[in-house]
Simulated assay, not measured.
Amino acid sequence: MIRKQAAKRTRIRVRRKQAAGHRTTPLKIQIPKKKKPLKGRLKKTRLAARKRRRPLRKKFRFHLTGQPAAVVGSPLPPQAFTYAAAVGYTGRPDLLQQALQSVQPLWNNTLVIDNSKELSIASNPALAAVPVYQPPVPFTYSQTMNLLHRIGADRGCEVIIFARNDALAHPGTTEKLLDMIGTLQITGQKWGAVFTASRALAAYNMAAVREVGPWDIHFPHEFSDDDYHRRLQLAGYELVSTDLAAALLHEGQLEKSNPEPRINPDLMRTLYEQYYVQKWGGRPGEEQFKQLFNQFPLNPVPNYLS
């Protein structure tokens, strides 16, 4: 279009000179023709030549335990998530040592919370690789989980992981769990918790924790999982159960090894079950309420961990 307008202006100038008596030579203006698109075999040859000239691009895969590895595969950049892990210890240091050895990939971010009534295990040379925290008084399971919430929030973690001190993760289980959590984080799935077999390891999404709130300390142990996991589900978070191999070590011996007499466990379980029914309108699996006691919000603590 621009060339046509320029040619038109040139013709007008020539005509004006001819009208004024000036001698002019014939003017021939050539407008370049548009290139025709390449067809067939020639087009394919040109495209192939362009591709050969392009620089090679590096591809990476996700190594979700924290260190990226350059491996041809996924075009996505390396990513990692931050986490804090804790082992709740109540007794039997021999079992604790075995449990810690099975989760060695977590050691850099792991803390042992000593809830036993024995002498501190911090001086045990077998546990030198992992720091030990002993509360002023032994914590219940729910209190231990709330402490882990605070640790995760203070460290700015995206995930917290709880490990039982009487459970053994099979080789490769810890790494696979971390990879699975990383995939959930990358895809943006709204997940609340991920469990291994026997729930020896349990990971919780800190975004879900902040929305749902703390564990109910009126459930020291029994029904505490049922209560918290129901709140996660009602808030729209998915509970992911896996078949990652893990097993309990000498199941039942941990409770039997406790030298202190306990209040009648059957009586206490009945009391906790009655409290659960009042809170949710039914026993686990038979709940009727979608709010706490059918009237209160799922998170009893506004601005939790803020």
Rank of each mutant, 00 (worst) to 15 (best):
K4W: 10
Q5V: 08
I12F: 06
V14C: 11
R16M: 10
A20L: 12
H22T: 09
I29Q: 06
K34G: 10
G40I: 04
R46C: 14
K51S: 12
R52W: 07
R57E: 12
F62V: 07
S74N: 06
P75S: 12
A84R: 07
T90G: 00
L95S: 04
L95R: 15
V103W: 00
V103F: 03
Q104C: 01
P105E: 05
L106D: 00
L111F: 04
N115T: 03
S116K: 01
A122K: 14
L127V: 11
A129N: 10
V130R: 01
P138Q: 04
L147G: 05
D154P: 07
G156K: 02
G156E: 07
V159F: 03
I160L: 11
I161D: 00
L177S: 00
V194G: 02
F195C: 15
R199M: 06
A202D: 05
M206E: 09
A207W: 03
G213C: 01
H218T: 11
H221W: 00
D226N: 14
H229S: 09
R230K: 10
R231I: 02
L232A: 01
G236P: 13
D243M: 08
A245S: 13
L249D: 03
E255L: 04
K256V: 05
S257L: 02
Y275C: 01
K279Q: 07
G281C: 05
R283S: 13
R283T: 12
Q288I: 11
Q291H: 11
Q295T: 15
N299K: 06
